[in-house]
Write a protein that binds this DNA or RNA. Structure first.
Lengths: 196, 196
DNA sequence: GCCTGTCTAGAACGATCGCTCTAGGCTGGG
DNA sequence: CCCAGCCTAGAGCGATCGTTCTAGACAGGC
């Protein structure tokens, strides 16, 4: 994969995180990435929309890997704490980045869900893959099959929802509240399943 | 309050729900509301930013009233179901509106949190007022004081998060999963507090 | 009748938008 | 050396952006 292409995606990702899709101009992306407009259209012939899809997919894959990496570090007897630490890690990066959005996908998804079907589908695919990743972790955490789908969806919703609140309030409170609650939910669901 | 001013706010609200802040032009607001650009600047001398603040505050108050209205309908022995029905109601309006965002504030908040302090503060105030409304309901539901703040925050985060997921997937699943989980959380917290 | 303040009306401003286009630099194979 | 293909470079397109401006419609008080 081209190095310039990567720089374009990285810079666009950062700009989307800071100000969203529509507020970010191609000229801004050009200067931030050091690539010219011509290069952007060379790598993304579909223009801004196609670039948006690429950013969504790239970020989606990166976040899924991060999630798996954090969950891999949890002790076998307490995978629920891995879920909790995911939120704590997000809280750290949020504060470090002067409360730039940790996740460009949620922002962009809300902007374009009714206006760009390609980007909407890309975001939908990413969310589905995150739910999938969470579901398999829940299964190995001992959560019963009747609860894994719902809890995995709730986990992703909690991530996106607490990002909004923490960013708007410039405080990690919402993220930590969400982390603790998700941790409890996973523990309780696993315990309930073990009890039956 | 002027009737024209109301029409401007209502139309802007709808446009923000559909496509967000930056994708919505003043010309579009003008034609959608039937008010001219001059009228918009007459009522909102601060321009688009000031109009955005007004929309956020107006929607915030409306949603808080809706929340209270729905919670008022729940039977005294089961206030948790009120929380659950709030999500079910959102799921209905989402599907009816062709999956337009039920809440413009979350969208706008993510777009402007790092670029417009007035709008960020307005959104922060709205979220805080929602947390406050939820907290007082949790208290009267019998939830212990050590849990009300966290659960109220989680409730609002779940609302915003499941809106994103349900809208991008064009399915009510996330909203219903969130509703059921919040209902359980409230019930369990109340039961745990009653047990001690 | 006129005056004052509220509100409507929309032309016009410079800036920026996403995008297209042509031209040129660079590299590896022949 | 030349050529083909990949990539860079940026001027320029029409359209639209948020905003400002002047002019007029309309009402209630005198």
């Amino acid at each position: 994969m081209s190095e310039t292409r990567d720089r374009i995606i990285t810079a666009t990702n950062e700009l989307f995180r800071r100000q969203g899709f529509h507020a970010t101009g191609l000229k801004e992306i050009s200067t931030a990435s050091g690539a010219t407009i011509g290069s952007i259209y060379h790598f993304f012939p579909g223009g801004k929309e196609r670039l948006g899809v690429a950013v969504i997919e790239s970020t989606g894959a990166a976040y899924r890997e991060l999630f798996d990496a954090i969950l891999d570090e949890s002790p076998d007897d307490d995978p629920a704490s891995g879920f909790e630490r995911f939120f704590a890690a997000a809280a750290d990066t949020l504060a470090e980045s002067d409360y730039i959005d940790p996740c460009p996908i949620g922002t962009v998804a809300r902007e374009i869900a009714n206006t760009s079907e390609p980007m909407r589908l890309a975001a939908d695919g990413v969310f589905a893959s995150w739910v999938d990743a969470a579901r398999s972790r829940l299964t190995s955490a001992g959560v019963g099959q009747e609860d894994t789908g719902r809890l995995a969806t709730v986990f992703v919703a909690m991530v996106e929802g607490s990002f909004v609140l923490s960013r708007t309030s410039r405080s990690a409170d919402a993220l930590l509240a969400a982390g603790r609650t998700v941790g409890d939910l996973v523990r309780n669901a696993a315990a309930a399943n073990a009890g039956t």
